[in-house]
């Protein structure tokens, strides 16, 4: 009896580890993409992905059906939280400004676009969590159904949420430009 239980537990553990590896392989690149969409920094995006997977592995079973949706949502929120951290943001903006200084191709246009992107990310950090996450997840290539699952809202609401979020963000960027 004891041996049977032990063997069963070992099989369950192995199955869970295998399931986690499969989940990791299937979702890692996408989780990094989501974080990178927010942070525009591949190294920091990988840090976020690492944190997200470690958290998932600590607290959830890899066979849970909500796994991918949980990872997508966590990636969006964790990277948006980083964006909101004022110290990190200042550091990132400084780094981006230095990067911009290095760019020699069409400097005027490049600088304008980079400035717009910087303002956009500042504006993303000011937005409420849900609309910001809708934008980021959709921009990262998730389908309407996947965005709905990640955020726990009905698929029928995604179009409206997305449209409002896009309008809000554009307004925020414009406000930032005029300030």
């Amino acid at each position: 009896m004891g041996l049977n239980l032990g063997a069963r537990r070992l099989t369950a553990v192995r199955t869970d580890e295998e399931a986690f590896e499969a989940l990791f392989t299937a979702e890692y690149a996408r989780v990094v993409r989501i974080a990178n969409r927010v942070l525009a920094d591949p190294h920091e995006a990988e840090d976020v992905a690492q944190e997200v997977f470690v958290d998932f592995h600590r607290l959830h079973s890899a066979t849970a059906q909500y796994g991918p949706a949980w990872l997508h949502r966590a990636a969006a929120h964790a990277s948006l939280n980083r964006l909101r951290g004022s110290r990190r943001r200042q550091k990132r903006e400084l780094a981006q400004a230095l990067d911009e200084g290095d760019k020699m191709l069409d400097p005027q246009k490049q600088a304008e676009l980079e400035e717009d992107r910087r303002r956009l990310r500042q504006a993303l950090g000011r937005m409420a969590p849900k609309p910001a996450a809708v934008l980021v997840l959709r921009a990262s290539g998730l389908s309407y159904a996947e965005v709905a699952q990640a955020l726990g809202v009905g698929i029928g609401q995604i179009g409206t949420l997305l449209r409002r979020a896009e309008a809000t963000l554009r307004k925020e960027v414009t406000r930032g430009t005029s300030e």
């Binding site: 690149a29 993409r33 990178n36 995006a45 554009r170």
Partner: peptide, 12 residues
């Protein structure tokens, strides 16, 4: 918004 959010996909 799509243009501004566009970033190259990182290699992982």
């Amino acid at each position: 918004v799509a243009t501004l959010l566009a970033v190259p996909d990182p290699r992982v």
